[in-house]
């Protein structure tokens, strides 16, 4: 794992690592750096589709609940309106749509990120404490087919990092 002082250095290093054929790696930064997704070759996340599904489900559930309770199980004559007076059902349907989409965005994001996670090996590196403040890290994982303890260490040093360290699982 190599440590860098600026986001630009991390992005450049990540691009280099990818050009050298490393694939199983991750970058860590104290704030979002959009360019990293491209440098790491990340695919677009499935999250938007999940949120759409959540919204549609929420809307159907809301309208379904209204229809079932007002038309089937507990029909009441309110000012002579039809039992299925759909315009009255729109505000609640809208709110449940929003609720479903928001819950899907929240739960989906944390689930896809596999968080909360109480333990992760990167925290074993003392320098990593600054990953949440002002330092940027590139970590090449041992599962990468090109990974070789010695060669990878040498490669990371060639990127002019502020420091290189080994992550012990």
């Amino acid at each position: 794992m190599a440590e860098f002082e600026t986001p630009a250095a991390l992005v450049a290093a990540t691009e280099q690592a990818r050009l050298h054929g490393y694939r199983q790696m991750d970058a860590y930064s104290p704030m979002p750096v959009e360019e990293l997704s491209e440098a790491l070759g990340l695919r677009r996340t499935r999250l938007p589709r999940l949120v759409l599904a959540g919204g549609v489900l929420g809307g159907l559930a809301g309208y379904g609940l209204e229809y079932w309770s007002q038309v089937i199980t507990y029909p009441l004559n309110i000012g002579g309106r039809p039992f299925h007076s759909w315009p009255h059902f729109i505000p609640v349907t809208f709110e449940t749509t929003v609720l479903g989409a928001a819950l899907a965005a929240f739960v989906g994001m944390w689930a896809l990120n596999r968080l909360p996670q109480p333990y992760h090996p990167v925290f074993n590196v003392p320098a990593f404490a600054r990953a949440s403040v002002d330092r940027f890290f590139l970590c090449i994982e041992a599962t990468d087919p090109k990974f070789d303890r010695h060669a990878t260490w040498k490669f990371l040093e060639s990127l002019h990092p502020a420091g290189v360290s080994e992550v012990v699982a």
């Binding site: 979002p32 909360p116 990953a131």
Partner: peptide
């Protein structure tokens, strides 16, 4: 929640 600032996480 064990947030570690991973680029994959930031993207999502």
């Amino acid at each position: 929640l064990g947030w570690r600032g991973s680029a994959r996480h930031w993207q999502r």
